[in-house]
Amino acid sequence: MSEEKTFVPSIVYFMCSWCGSGGAETAAAHHLHYPENVLPSRVNCTGALPAVHILRPLIEGADGVVISGCHPGDCHYDDGNFRARRRIALVKSLLDTLGLEPERVWFRYVAHGEGRRFVDTAAAFNEHIKTLGPNPLKTRSDT
């Protein structure tokens, strides 16, 4: 087997506690599966996710970070997802300027009832990172 096939990415999935993790619950109710190397992590609202918490896994060994929150207009706190979008645009701009592959960060809306969309997002991001290959910062000891 080639190296690309054996590469199992490590992925952090930040989901908001309303729609994101709701999507995960719906997926569980339907017995839908997502790749086991995706590590789910619940945050109160994507708008409350600090930029540092996206950068830190990328520096410390994750190959990608995916964030999902409520659809526009559906945020439990009214505007958290709009704020998150701005913050993620900021993080992506920083990564882009420094040549650190902004495509390793995904932001997608997943509603509470969209269990299929939740597992699809996890699976599609997993495939996307597999094609991108390992994160070069992962093996650097001097970060």
């Binding site: 709009f82 704020r83 645009a89 997608r108 969309r117 699809d120």
Partner: peptide
């Protein structure tokens, strides 16, 4: 924030 902005940040869902 604006409601209609930065759509290139959002990852479109491909079914």
């Amino acid at each position: 924030y604006e409601m209609d902005e930065l759509h290139d940040v959002e990852q479109a869902y491909v079914e």
